[in-house]
Simulated assay, not measured.
Amino acid sequence: MPTIAVLVKNVPDTWSTKDLKDDYTLDRENVDAVIDEINEYAMEQALRIREAHPDAGYSVTAITIGPKGAEEALRKAIAMGADSALHVLDDALAGSDVLATAWTMTNAINSLEDVQLVIAGNASSDAGTGALPGIIAEYLQLPALTHLTSMQVDPAAASISGTRVSNEGSYELRAGLPALVTVTDQADRPRFPNFKGIMAAKKTEIPAISIADLGVAAEQVGQAHAATVVTNAARRPERQAGEVIRDNDSAATAKAIVDFLEERKLLS
C-alpha cells in the first residue's frame, strides 16, 4: 500500500510566553503546546490526494519527533483523517540540531512501507528556518517541490505537480514520485475534525519508537553532538514608535520619505 507521510510538530502556542532554559534550549514544559498550524495545511493536502485517488490505495501516516506529549499533534492529525501515526520518542534526542533531527526523521520515513510522498509545512512556527524538509529530501535523495500553494498527483504517471508562488512570480513545478513537497498557508484550508475523527483520535494507540529502533546511534543526535552551539541569547527589544512625518510642506515631506527609504535600501 503506497504511503503519504506527513511531518507534524507539537509547538508552543503562538500566544504563549516563551522562555529559554539555562542551556539556551526552548522551555517546552511550561507552555501550552498545539499542533503547528502549517502542519494542518500539509495534512489537508495528503487527505485530498487520498480522496481524489481512491483506487491508488494511499494510506496517510503522520510522523512526529518529540518528548512525551508531542503525540497530541498526532492525535489532531488522526482526528482530521490520518490512517496512522508514528511518534519518535527518545531522551537522547533532546537538544538535537536540524541535521540530527532530519537524519532521525529520514530513518523514521524509511521505516514506513512504500512511501511515495512526504508532505511538510514550509517552516515551523517555533523555529521558522524552513531548513528541515530540504535536508530530509537530500538524505532521501528525493526531488523537493517547496513552498507550494497547490498540488496534484497523477498515480498512473507516478508524478506530482504544483504551483509555487513567490515575490518573483508563479512557477509550475513537476517531479516524478516518490518526492517531497512543502506547502504554505496559501494552500487549501484545513478541515475541522468531525465527531467520528475526534473519537478515533482519542482511542488510537500511537506507537512510540526509539532511535535504536530506527538504527540511529546516540552519538548522531542530541545537544552534545550538535553541529552548532548557542552561547548567548538576548530578548528582542521592545518595538519603538515609528517616525511621524507631518504634511506641512509637501516637498519636504516627499524628500523625508525618499531619504527614509534610501537609508533602508528600499529604492531601486
Rank of each mutant, 00 (worst) to 15 (best):
V216D: 01
N232W: 12
S159P: 05
L177I: 06
V221K: 00
A200L: 14
P178T: 07
F192M: 07
V230F: 02
D213L: 15
G215Y: 00
Q220W: 00
A227L: 15
A226D: 00
G222N: 11
L180K: 13
Q186G: 08
Q186H: 11
I206C: 08
T204A: 09
F195N: 11
K202R: 13
R239Y: 11
D185T: 15
H225F: 01
R235G: 12
A226K: 04
Q240P: 13
I211H: 00
R246A: 15
A208V: 09
R174A: 14
Q240D: 10
L173P: 09
E172N: 13
E243R: 06
D213N: 14
R235Q: 10
D188P: 11
E219L: 06
V221A: 06
A208E: 15
S170P: 12
F195W: 15
G215F: 00
Q240L: 01
Q220E: 00
R191W: 03
A179F: 09
P178V: 07
V183I: 07
A200T: 13
G215K: 00
V216S: 01
G222W: 15
I245T: 10
S166Q: 11
A227R: 13
V230E: 02
T184M: 02
G215V: 02
F192Y: 13
G162F: 02
A208F: 08
D185K: 15
A212G: 08
A179W: 05
T228M: 07
N232I: 11
A208G: 06
S170F: 07
T228G: 06
S166G: 04
Q223Y: 03
L214T: 00
T204F: 04
A158D: 04
R174N: 14
A226R: 02
P190K: 03
G242E: 02
